[in-house]
Design a protein around this nucleic acid. Structure first.
Lengths: 204, 204
DNA sequence: TGGCCTACCAACCAACTAGTTCGTTTGTTA
DNA sequence: TAACAAACGAACTAGTTGGTTGGTAGGCCA
């Protein structure tokens, strides 16, 4: 067969994304990844070492994609951030699933790409703080963490959302309503700045 | 050996909780559950049919515990709800992990205990709406879903929280600050009722 | 007290899994 | 053009896994 090692690798990685997002590390099957990629299983071991090695590579790439797409930009309003992230995550649930798998399958001692991730969140915190006219610190970081949460939660727990909202979130209209609700909720949440002030008092 | 079938079952269930919370359905090992329970593997199959049967039993019980502990009570203020749930989930991460496993491992077509869960969330929505002086509907359900999210997110994604907050959430003090932040954020979020009004306009 | 049924254990089993080995093919370079 | 190294496929392997089987023991009831 004609050889193109880079295309082989790309096919394996593409197949692995699908498999790991669907099943996580423990549930994924190397045989299936190989079959989906159209290459022999031995190619996977030759290029990635082992199953865990392939997983870490895929996880790293996917989390980075998600992180870069949901970074807080300079001048970005809280509500606009919520809307942007909500939409992005709704369209890329496989990325969000990897975040969930990571939360469940990693013991938290070794964090993949820790330094790069901290830098990225640091930049988001700075941009958020700047926009709010405050100094970046634990209080604005808590807000950032919460904003990430409220935008990720609906896509990560879509089934739960349907139960709680009596299927309102099962329609496109309901999704839009939820998104706009979150936009307003987030804006109201910081509008009075009370939460940031009182949390500051707690911290001092 | 002396026989006590009820004690056997209880031991198996207790061991299974630990195993399934740690590893999910695909990653859990029946051998380990048996060893941890102190009973022979065959007992598991005799009483629960198969691995999946045991998992469903454990999942059902654990999600119910969590749901009942985090129901919105009559007269309960939004902020108090947040504080209560935050604390409960921080102390019962194994329950929250089961919710994550479910989100990842179930395809959403068959929802365990669907009717009971809908009823419970319906009650929470009614209590929340009553307290806000509104009629329970999609708008208040969205708020409920969001409150559930902001209280679950920090415990479910504790490692991510440490990255985002530069380790602020790694201390008890930081956890308390985050909790109080969320209390105020939620109160501010609904205080002006703007988000509920505008989402209503969207719905009409 | 003996018979019966269920709880229980240890050993077993077929299929699956991550990973390895061996041989062939392809592409590059001297 | 021949040699060599890396890419590739098919077959193999040892260990693991969910589940089963066969025998024993304990408790209950007539």
């Amino acid at each position: 067969m004609a050889r193109n090692p880079e295309a082989t690798q790309a096919s394996i990685l593409a197949a692995a994304r699908v498999e790991f997002a669907a099943y996580g590390l423990a549930g994924a099957r190397v045989d299936r990844i190989a079959a989906r990629s159209g290459y022999n299983k031995q190619r996977i071991y030759a290029r990635f070492g082992d199953k865990e090695g392939l997983y870490q590579r895929v996880l790293s790439e996917m989390l980075e994609e998600m992180r870069l797409a949901t970074v807080v930009r300079e001048g970005e309003d809280v509500g606009d951030y919520v809307r942007k992230s909500f939409d992005y995550l709704s369209e890329h649930r496989e990325l969000l699933r990897m975040l969930l798998w990571e939360a469940l399958e990693c013991d938290g001692e070794f964090v993949p790409d820790e330094a790069a991730r901290r830098r990225c969140y640091g930049r988001s915190n700075a941009a958020l703080a700047e926009h709010l006219g405050r100094t970046a610190g634990p209080d604005t970081a808590r807000l950032l963490f919460t904003l990430i949460g409220i935008t990720a939660w609906p896509s990560a727990f879509a089934t739960l959302g349907r139960l709680v909202t009596d299927n309102d979130t099962a329609t496109e209209e309901g999704q839009r309503a939820l998104r706009e609700f979150l936009v307003e909720f987030a804006r109201s949440g910081v509008a009075t700045a009370n939460c940031l002030i009182s949390a500051d008092a707690n911290n001092s």
